[in-house]
Amino acid sequence: MSLINVKDIRKVYRVDEEKIVALGRINLRIEQGEICCILGTSGSGKSTLLNIMAGLEKPTKGSVFIAGKNVTQFTEKQWALFRQRNIGFVFQSYNLMPTQTAIENVAMPLMFKGINKRTRTKEAVHMLKAVGLGSRMMHRPTQMSGGQQQRVGIARAFVAKPKIVFADEPTGNLDSKTSRGVMEIMVRMAKIHHETLIIVTHDVNIAKYADRIINLHDGSIISDEPNQSIVSLDEEKKEPASAAVNE
């Protein structure tokens, strides 16, 4: 059974009297541990598809099954609990709490799961070291570069060991060198822990990090092909990122 099964998903927005079809009839299966890139230009429907899979939007028609559960039938409360247990997010704009330190930001998903402060601090420290931020743990977002903030975001997304991590334009605010380091960290971490990573991007260079590239255009899948990730097997065996992005 596939981890994610998207069945006949359609999304239509109404703007005044006009109907705008964001997604046509999308069918898609994603397996546990896959690194998938949903690639498309602005307006292709890629972010809408991610939002529907993550329960942030409801489809007009169709269903999404995750681990055999029809999540499109979930209430908001059911979705909140399901996300806490199964899903991590990496955002383009980082979405860190500005008044909190890196440790506090990373520990937040564990707090929502009811884990005690000592344990969640220990896990947050471990994750920050894993993404190369051992010397930035007590820094707040305003004291860090964009690349460092995104690495905090990655640590936060993976700290609770989710089944799925959704990354929506995760390098959109970063320069090309920093983007490469961030992608290597994120892909390596997902592969080491056999977690499913779904990346949404318009950038073909970012798509090269995925094992599978799903190309969207005007709300339809126009291609779905395997890809040889530029993160090599040798790199996957290393501890996630290290010197990929300089502190």
Rank of each mutant, 00 (worst) to 15 (best):
D175S: 13
F74N: 02
G181E: 12
Q228N: 13
M183S: 04
R156T: 11
K208W: 02
Q143W: 04
T171Y: 12
R180T: 08
H193S: 11
T48Q: 05
H139N: 13
N86H: 15
K191A: 08
I30M: 02
R140S: 06
Q150G: 11
A80Y: 03
K238C: 04
T99W: 10
K69C: 00
Q228K: 11
E235L: 11
H139S: 15
P226V: 07
L197A: 05
A243D: 15
A124R: 10
N173I: 04
I4P: 00
N70R: 10
R120Q: 15
I164K: 09
H217I: 08
V64R: 03
Q32S: 13
R188S: 12
K7I: 08
G219Y: 12
M97D: 05
Q32G: 02
Y209E: 06
L128S: 07
G147H: 13
A80L: 12
P162W: 03
G172V: 09
Q32D: 03
A67G: 15
L3K: 03
V125I: 14
L110R: 07
H126S: 13
K208F: 02
H126L: 09
T178W: 10
P170M: 13
L3V: 02
M138F: 10
Q150Y: 07
G153W: 09
I198F: 00
G55S: 07
L3R: 04
V64D: 00
I199D: 03
E17L: 11
V6G: 06
M138W: 10
A107I: 06
I115Q: 06
A160V: 00
T201P: 12
G68D: 09
Y209W: 09
A22C: 08
A155P: 14
E225S: 11
A243W: 01
A157K: 00
I4R: 00
K117H: 14
K61F: 14
V15H: 10
G40V: 01
S93I: 01
R85I: 03
V187L: 02
I4H: 00
T41H: 11
I230Y: 06
V200P: 04
K129V: 10
P98F: 11
L197K: 01
E239K: 14
S242R: 15
N5T: 12
A124Y: 09
S220L: 04
E104N: 09
N86F: 01
M186S: 04
